[in-house]
Design a binder for these strands. Structure first.
Lengths: 340, 340
DNA sequence: TTGTAAGCGTTATCAC
DNA sequence: GTGATAACGCTTACAA
């Protein structure tokens, strides 16, 4: 019925000018109470909706932030997105989701599209594939607030919210050591990503701190899938010494590990303890619940959003570079809980 | 470094007009190959990015669609979103996520904001709370394509993609009957939502088709949580006849049911069979995997997106009303798989 | 083939 | 207080 009601239509109806209508709508003090009311009333009556596009074009603010993640259908990322949206929504911001599927072309393309869409900021968890930072540099050059979460690149002046993956790897390993395990295998994923490299380093440090010799063949790099976990166990079975604990940098891999261990008749945790990473929902829901390192996705998203808000509200040009590192928390469950 | 490069800047550099630049950028045929190349080249050199806002304002097309869901951190919805995004991305559309948290105010507000943002369409799974459709009517009045998925309202002329919840309830119940169960309890959730009402109706129909008397006290309505499932079992325990099967309209409730049944010492599925609904990832990952009805979220999202694309491409005013109903699929797992 | 100019819906800066 | 007008960056008849 109503095609496109603009402030001009309201102005015409009221025999005033569009400028006055605009003022009324924006609570401009320079306007009489009467006209304001009148305008608001007829605006409602005519089912008028502001055109944010026009507003955005005029003001240079779109009230949209772009969030770039590898895949949205992972609990970890979905939880972060939810936290970001929840935090930004009351401030009038809307969130555009972009998935990279861990492919560099899509990542570049996404950044590009977001810039074209004049977003007020970009929150990004970089893909496995991101190598150089030239595309990111463009964002910075354009002075569009950029914030890393979870997976970051080291860039000067850019804020980030991550967890201490090193510590995560450390506490997981330490817990296994304290449970009496001596032969601790670490299954890692793509170590070109800092998160996996750091977890691995944490593992090594814990071993060294507790005087447990590091064995190179006890670090296995696999894909982040359940099947890869099963395969890893099969491979280990062929080696000379079977471990008494497995610390996986991924919950999915840990699940595969557990399934295969059971299949082979090992008792968990009596013979082999298992620890995962991410605290995916299923780890706590399982009958044999899985010990895992929590990454506080909710907190991470919330803080990332807050850092963004700070950045846009700091009127001046002062660059605030915040590197926020959250502390991971170990959730000890049955898969590593030895009764003594 | 570069503030805001516009087509005027390019025009000035090349000593031509903005119009020509625009044409070159948009592959307008009325332009010489030379100028086009020249323009594209310098555009790249100057790191020019189109301003979609201005384009959108001019053309009336924002290339953004809004997706409204209760909560994004549920696998079901996250999967749908992923499918929608994957389908729409190649067509140049971007997706704005809006969460209602099942609250009517946020739902109305979200619709409002999306309309103000001039989205090209709205895909919505309505909240528990949505009662009248007046806000939706506004969307329709504005001729903004509107598509329901999963949870819908009956509105003339509006397309929807849902699953056959009635059938879902039916096949789940039928499966239990065929497994030899006679005393089948149905635990449902908020039946003001069609999805739950329909599943319940399917349950009743299956009972009647197989000549199993319907017992009113065998239908329990609870909240959609794990704890509610536990409570339900406790309540049943007090009643005179304990069931030999429980069909829950929610996987989470089913999980709670299973946990409590085990706790009370019941053998699953020998003594009590359990079936859930949604095919949440954890149902298959559990040691005691849970039989569940799959709702094809991926397909649902993909089709919803396709319906939207059809709707915007059908140039004319012809209203296409598509009511697409997907067939649910029962995944039979250990929680109801009786060996005979 | 290219230039000119109007307009998309707002808002801000002037005047009055 | 209110009105007129320019401007945000782009597209597109209409001219040339």
């Amino acid at each position: 019925m109503d095609k496109k009601v603009t402030i001009y239509d309201i102005a015409k109806t009221l025999e005033i000018t569009a400028a006055t209508v605009s003022r009324a709508l924006n609570n401009n003090p320079k306007i009489s109470a009467k006209t304001r009311e009148l305008v608001l009333e007829t605006a409602k009556k005519m089912n008028y909706k502001q055109n944010r596009l026009a507003q955005a074009l005029k003001s240079g603010k779109s009230n949209i932030v772009g969030v770039i993640i590898p895949k949205i259908n992972r609990t970890f990322f979905a939880t972060i997105i939810k936290a970001i949206e929840d935090e930004l929504y009351p401030h009038g911001y809307h969130v555009i989701i972009c998935q990279t599927d861990d492919r560099i072309e899509r990542e570049i393309d996404n950044i590009d599209t977001l810039l074209k869409a004049q977003v007020d900021g970009i929150l990004i968890s970089i893909s496995n594939a991101m190598e150089d930072a030239s595309e990111l540099q463009r964002v910075i050059d354009k002075k569009v607030p950029l914030i890393f979460f979870d997976r970051k690149k080291e860039l000067k002046g850019i804020s980030s919210v991550t967890i201490d993956d090193f510590k995560g790897g450390y506490i997981a390993t330490e817990h296994l050591i304290n449970s009496g395990c001596k032969q601790i295998v670490h299954i890692t994923c793509d170590r070109s990503l800092d998160i996996y490299k750091d977890r691995c380093e944490g593992y090594k440090k814990a071993l060294s701190d507790y005087k447990i010799p590091f064995r190179k063949e006890y670090v296995i790099e696999v894909k982040n899938t359940i099947d890869a976990g099963k395969e890893a166990v099969k491979k280990l079975k062929k080696s000379d010494t079977f471990p008494d604990a497995i610390f996986s940098a991924s919950d999915y891999v840990a699940l595969g590990v557990i399934q295969e261990l059971k299949h082979k008749g090992y008792k968990i945790p009596e013979e082999v303890s298992v620890v995962g990473f991410s605290n995916e929902p299923f780890t706590s829901l399982m009958e044999l619940s899985i010990t895992s390192v929590d990454q506080s996705p909710k907190k991470m998203g919330k803080i990332a959003a807050q850092v963004f808000l700070e950045q846009v509200s700091s009127s001046s040009e002062l660059k605030i570079e915040k590197k926020i590192v959250l502390t991971p928390k170990l959730h000890i469950r049955k898969s590593s809980l030895k009764m003594k």
